[in-house]
Design a protein around this nucleic acid. Structure first.
Lengths: 328, 328
DNA sequence: CTGAAAGCGCTTACAG
DNA sequence: CTGAAAGCGCTTACAG
């Protein structure tokens, strides 16, 4: 920590003002500050001889410029770049897009000091939020103050308007599935888990009901925890089952077997989720586009930086095609 | 960028000095600065009402403290957290150990602006280097100035002493392999590729020769690019082949087949590398301990931070056991 | 064409 | 027990 060389050292060695050093070394010479070629040369040589490395913290503090660092904030237990994290693909898309745009990433994942952690965001000039916690005071304050921040997935936080987020185009995906199903029949059982209701699950459900109405389909909702045989029979009566989560399939499979029902033939199933482990080809579903969404989050953040529009105004969010991999 | 609230705003609202705000908000009240409980309460309320978030860049600039951010620097094309990067496991170990110690990670991987990139290191208070480029002026300057920096893998940079690095214990691994081989015979062909000579490959080779001498084994060196039949026959005559890189196996396999030689029976092969794709069970080799090495790099960096020893003095480096997964 | 000065947002001696 | 002031290392108007 001791003998760091600063701009002052360079200035002294080159016999110029610090301003001149700053201008030359950050290629801003010629704007407000003009430096003669000889001095310029001398400054560069002095910097090299001394081993000067600019203090990025000081630069950022003073200039307030975009420092081309994006914080990636995750509330989850598993770090998002762990392959078996459900956020890995988001993260992977974020990283490659960030690199394309010349941004570096600050990963905020330590759980030790919650408070310090959200503070470190201020070392970056923008943040991408993965995960669903919404009660971080610092984060909410920063949003209010117009700190560029993009959520992956629609987010709704009470008291906060104009949140920036990118999301899948669930509407067209859900409608696509409904159109396929309409060819089979007009009654649909919609099975959802009891789990925590997030914005995406709210959206999917509302698009489903809205679409059903438009397409004259009849939907019956079921909340399922443990599945009894009676329940199964009631649900499967319609011949068409839509799940909101993949894992629900496991609850039903034993009964499909027991009653000799073949999915895609005797009964039709669709799932409104994307994280497919492989197999399950008889299920109607959509592709995993998480990488694309991660990449989109970065694009959105970059546009927030470059645009003259105040961050608080909502920028148009291009939608990811959630292309349905449905059978004909 | 506009309406960020600063410590000044909080101080004004709470009718105290900025010093008091700073002390209270960073839990340093009671040291040099004492604040009455009422004022303390008022400060906290004011900060909350205003939505104050400390500016980490300013804090770091002023205090110079350990800001608990580690830069992870990689020179490679593929980002280290890409699963198929050869650095993925190092990175994975770095990340989990960093989290354990309450450190966040700044990933420096963008290739657009090489200069800016190494500058951003200064936003962190330590760095871990993966990959082998050694001609980054900024990095070298920072090392000279005592910036805490740890290389993954032994590194040798001209003009720089007391580099910090963590490395595999190649010596014991290579000796372990030699001891196994000694049971088979006393003549060994050492085949290495023509590729770029890095410190690890230098180390492995020198341990191999040194160990052979101690164990009274005879080693003949071969540099191989395209393998001719004549060459193959010469090399395989010894009955024992040691490769420095896994991919060399592919050059030899066709000839093993042609001459009906079975590895582990008619001929013995060992490889001084760890990144095994699976299979190849007949080859003597060692385990992949990259994750452990990544984790060790973080431990080393943390000890650099906490120790009162000047960074320039070399701290003892605990070695990773490169456990040999050799057959009996 | 060049340099002196103010100030970014903090923290930390130091004086009262 | 509390506040005024200096200063971390930069950049950017501004005055000459």
């Amino acid at each position: 920590m001791s003998n760091r060389v600063t701009i002052k050292d360079v200035a002294e060695r080159a016999n110029v003002s610090r301003a001149a050093v700053s201008a030359v070394l950050s290629d801003k010479d010629g704007k407000n500050i003009r430096v003669s070629p000889e001095k310029k040369d001398e400054i560069i040589r002095a910097a090299r001889a001394l081993g000067y490395v600019p203090n990025a913290a000081a630069q950022y503090l003073k200039s307030g410029d975009n420092n081309h660092i994006i914080s990636v904030f995750s509330y989850e237990k598993v770090s998002p770049f762990n392959t078996n994290s459900e956020y890995y693909l988001f993260f992977s898309g974020i990283e490659s897009e960030a690199e394309k745009n010349g941004y570096d990433l600050l990963l905020l994942n330590s759980f030790a000091k919650e408070k310090k952690r959200s503070t470190r965001i201020r070392l970056s000039s923008g943040a991408i939020m993965i995960g669903v916690d919404r009660d971080d005071e610092h984060i909410n304050s920063l949003i209010k103050q117009g700190f560029p921040l993009v959520f992956v997935g629609r987010r709704d936080i009470k008291g906060l308007e104009n949140l920036h987020y990118v999301t899948f185009d669930y509407k067209s995906a859900v409608y696509g599935i409904l159109e396929k199903l309409k060819k089979i029949g007009s009654k649909i059982s919609y099975v959802s888990s009891d789990s925590y209701i997030s914005e995406p699950s709210i959206d999917k459900s509302s698009f489903l009901h809205q679409g059903a109405e438009e397409l004259c389909l009849e939907i019956t909702d079921y909340k399922v925890k443990d599945l009894s045989e009676a329940e199964f029979l009631k649900i499967s009566e319609s011949g068409i089952i839509v799940f909101d989560r993949i894992f629900l399939i496991d609850l039903f499979t034993p009964y499909f077997n027991k009653f000799d029902m073949e999915v895609g033939k005797d009964i039709f199933g669709a799932v409104l989720e994307d994280d497919w482990p492989g197999g399950h080809e008889d299920w109607l579903r959509w592709e995993n586009r998480r990488m694309e969404l991660g990449s989109l989050a970065v694009k959105h953040l970059v546009s927030l930086h470059s645009s003259s529009v105040l961050p608080n105004s909502l920028i148009d969010i291009p939608l990811i095609d959630a292309k349905s991999a449905l059978k004909d």
